[in-house]
Structures are given as C-alpha cells and as structure tokens.
C-alpha cells in the first residue's frame, strides 16, 4: 500500500473523462452503454480508494449498491435497445429521434 491516494483518484478521474468522451462522441448506443459502465467503474474505484485509505468499510457497501444498480441499468437498457432495434432496425442514436418534435 505504498501507492498514495491521489494516484488512485487521478486514475479514476482519467477513467471518468474517457467515459464522458465516449458518451459524447460515439453514435452507437451499445458503445454509449459501455462508456457509462466505465464511468460507474471509475466512481467505484474512487469509493474503494477512499474506503481503503480511511479504514472505513461503508464505502465498499456503497460500491455494492452501485453494482446492483449498474446491473439493473444494463439489463433494462439493453432490453430497450433490442426493442428499439426491432422496431427501427438501427442502433444509431442520431436516427432514434422519435421522442423529438
């Protein structure tokens, strides 16, 4: 445990920024999902790092809940994507604009 805490925090900030770039630039819904998972992972890494360095386990319990919500989000999101693909034959978010007016 000789690596100091800011290294972990900087790494998770880098991961979060990469996820933001992915959400903003990619057109495929699946890749947007993967980027969201990246951002969730970076937040989990921050929580675990703080929890480990502060000697408090409750941060890791929080990571547990984040994982549960991430699993639910992935399942519902992919079901939505598959239903959309069945109707519109595309996963390009520029063409999924039926909620716009």
């Amino acid at each position: 445990m000789s690596v100091p805490l800011p290294y972990y925090l900087g790494l998770s900030a880098v991961l979060f920024a990469i996820g933001v770039i992915g959400v903003l630039t990619r057109r495929n819904v699946i890749v947007v999902f993967m980027s969201i998972e990246l951002m969730l992972n970076s937040v989990n890494l921050t929580l675990v790092a703080y929890s480990s360095f502060l000697g408090d386990v409750s941060g890791q319990a929080l990571v547990f809940f984040v994982m549960a919500v991430a699993a639910a989000e992935a399942a519902v999101g992919l079901a939505l994507v598959i239903a959309l693909f069945r109707n519109k034959q595309t996963v390009n978010i520029d063409q999924i604009n039926i909620l716009k007016w």
Binding site: F33, E37, A71, I82, F85
Partner: peptide, 12 residues
Amino acid sequence: ILTLLLFGVMLT
C-alpha cells in the same frame, strides 16, 4: 454485464 453487452452487440 459484459455478457449482456456482447449479446446486445451481436443482436443489434
């Protein structure tokens, strides 16, 4: 989650 994502990739 990764298995779900791979299924999503393959199905869409």
